[in-house]
Amino acid sequence: MTIRRHHDMGGLDAGPVDRSEHDYAMWEKRVDAIVKVLSTPDRKLLSTDELRRGIEELGPGVYDELSYYERWISSATNLLLEKGVITVDELGKKMAEVEARWIKDRETAE
């Protein structure tokens, strides 16, 4: 068997390189910062290779559907759950809280 994993794309056919660029959004920078902070030598809660492995394991559909930092935060979050740093329940509650707060803020801003 000569399995080629989905992320391992060197040499595959693809269209022209789209050279348009976007400035990184604050939330993307925050993902980057979270990963860097969690992987400092004194914490070692994440390693680059764990993050990469987690991204590879998102599977072909999700890998292509998500943007770069969406893949990062998905992988980092799964790793924090696996390692017991956070629980599913904590994450669910916190996400609901954040979402409710943002919706309220948007309404207030309008």
Binding site: I3, D8, G10
Partner: peptide
């Protein structure tokens, strides 16, 4: 090496 393990490796497929 012409090896194709299913886990995380850093050897690109094209060069095996």
């Amino acid at each position: 090496r012409e090896a194709y393990p299913p886990g995380h490796v850093r050897t690109p497929h094209f060069v095996r």
